[in-house]
Design a protein around this nucleic acid. Structure first.
Length: 126
DNA sequence: TCCTTGACTCAGA
DNA sequence: CTCTGAGCCAAGG
């Protein structure tokens, strides 16, 4: 498996991610890659490399996010929870369902209905 | 100081 | 739908 990559300035990057995640409204979700696409690319990082690893950087940032960050609203590109069984997977699902988000029979969220469209003033993805 | 360990995504079979 | 490989670095014990 491909190992891992970390942003040059993880502290700053994490701050960007947390700031972005805090803007996700209740009842909406965003994917790691989506969040990564909204935050600024760190200086010195090639766009191609950023595309390949930014999603993991977001994941890494979420692994140690402040209590005021709605981490449960960040899921993977498949519309599913990335956490392992013992890592809070059921907790995340419970929190999301409490916000009105629905899971299908395959534990997947319909991103077509619940995806956050992005920060205020951003163009809507299609 | 060495070694382990990470909330991802996309494309192809 | 499920599974595999590629992408390739830093912090903590």
């Amino acid at each position: 498996m491909a190992q891992f990559t970390s942003p040059p300035n993880s502290e700053w990057f994490k701050a960007q991610v947390w700031s972005m995640v805090r803007q996700i409204p209740t009842g909406k979700v965003a994917t790691y890659g989506q969040i990564a696409g909204y935050v600024a690319i760190p200086v010195g990082v090639d766009p191609d490399q950023y595309r390949a690893f930014s999603a993991r950087w977001v994941g890494g940032a979420m692994s140690s996010c402040p209590a005021d960050v709605p981490w449960q609203r960040v899921i993977n590109a498949q519309g599913k929870i990335s956490l392992p069984e013992g890592g809070g997977r059921s907790i995340q699902r419970d929190l999301l369902e409490a916000e009105g988000i629905e899971f299908d029979s395959r534990d997947r969220i319909n991103l077509d209905r619940f995806r956050w469209e992005g920060p205020t003033g951003s163009s809507v993805p299609e």
